[in-house]
Amino acid sequence: MTALDQSQIDTEITAARDAYAKALADGAAVRHHPSRDYAPYRSSELRHPKHALVEVRDPEAVELSGPVFGVTDVTDLDADLTRQHTGEPIGERITVTGRLLDRDGKPIRGQLVEIWQANASGRYAHQRDQHPAPLDPNFTGVGRCLTGDDGTYRFTTIKPGPYPWRNHTNAWRPAHIHFSLFGTAFTQRLVTQMYFPGDPLFPYDPILQAVTDDSARGRLVATYAHDRSSPEWSLCYRWDIVLDGPAATWIEEGRDG
């Protein structure tokens, strides 16, 4: 594969955004999720289906229920990524919190939230991450928690650093935290990434820009919440998550708990 430079990627990002704006103007629906076929993200080229998805409108579908998690699946330490080793990790200590909601605004209770991220220098504790930035022996970058009764999740962690990747020459990911989420239905499953406000790398990143709708893309960016920062301890970022999914989810007696 020939190495592309940023200007070629920028041209493609602009073209995709213009095509979406034109489709919207012509009456197309708002697209909340990224297109799986997004040329500026090179790895998508051979990994997106060409056939249209087949719609399932079956009220008996297994997918309208989903896996459940409970107190056996998390420990208290899982939500504090700064306390998983004997020493303190290096970097800017932060709190990340928000609510997990469905599209009606109802909290999703007692469900599993998983996060993973690079350390403060932009390196993952993963064998295949060969970015020559230091690993931090006191930071792994994996967290889990269950949402509370009002859908709240909360993690204490270290602000991740941006890191280079090989999509094109001089490709850098804006700092982000990966999130994995479950709703009450398997159809609500979501894996996504949270970004930090004001990051100068946003316009250059094909993964964030794959969300071509401006408003939708904005929903991936957390808000700095000064009133929730802990004095003398950590800055707070707030990020609510809304799970997509079918209008009617399958309910079994006694399931809610």
Binding site: Y41, Y124, H126, T140, V142
Partner: peptide, 15 residues
């Protein structure tokens, strides 16, 4: 409410 968009799981979910 508008849904939170999806993003790729990326290469480093393995740990």
């Amino acid at each position: 409410l508008a849904p939170t968009p999806s993003q790729t799981v990326g290469p480093f979910y393995g740990y």
